[in-house]
């Protein structure tokens, strides 16, 4: 990934924006060019619902180089309230408190920084919903 590809996807990451098929309503994050459910190419940007539940998760102890200073960190498969499934890091949570079925919400965070100039990439992570 280069700074330019980070820039290209910035709006999607900052706003938690995916794509929605105009014909069948299927939603994707990251966004897709063509709907894989119905084959339509008529897609529009959509801001995804910010709440969902953890379907499964892991805690990464053996990260790729770019993420080594952040390890360990948790990554979850999350089903949003509209049924869209996404992958994202969990934040503000004790690892031993993470449960399948736990309610989480999207939150704007720093994802990582890299390179000699400390280029920072921001985006969406998920934190437990405090009731």
């Amino acid at each position: 990934m280069t700074e330019i590809s980070d820039w290209r996807k910035r709006i999607e990451r900052y706003r938690f924006q995916g794509s929605e098929c105009v014909k069948c309503g299927a939603r994707y994050y990251p966004s897709r060019i063509k709907c894989i459910k119905c084959g339509s190419e008529e897609m529009r940007d959509v801001e995804l619902p910010r709440r969902g539940r953890v379907v499964s998760y892991t805690v990464i102890y053996n990260p790729p180089k770019k993420f080594s200073k952040y390890a360990p960190y948790a990554v979850a498969l999350i089903e949003l309230v509209d049924g869209t499934r996404v992958l994202g890091q969990l934040t503000d949570v004790d690892f031993d408190k993470i449960r399948v079925g736990m309610e989480v919400e999207a939150t704007f965070r720093k994802l990582y920084e890299y390179g000699e100039d400390g280029h920072i990439v921001y985006g969406t992570k998920f934190r437990p919903v405090v009731s």
Partner: peptide, 25 residues
């Protein structure tokens, strides 16, 4: 998909770990 891997910090082991937990549950 390197965009997903890069924006989540996932690894192949991590992806398989998510599948393993899903399977066990």
């Amino acid at each position: 998909d390197m965009y997903i891997m890069n924006s989540t910090g996932l690894t192949n082991a991590g992806l398989n770990a998510i599948l393993m937990r899903l399977y066990m549950e």
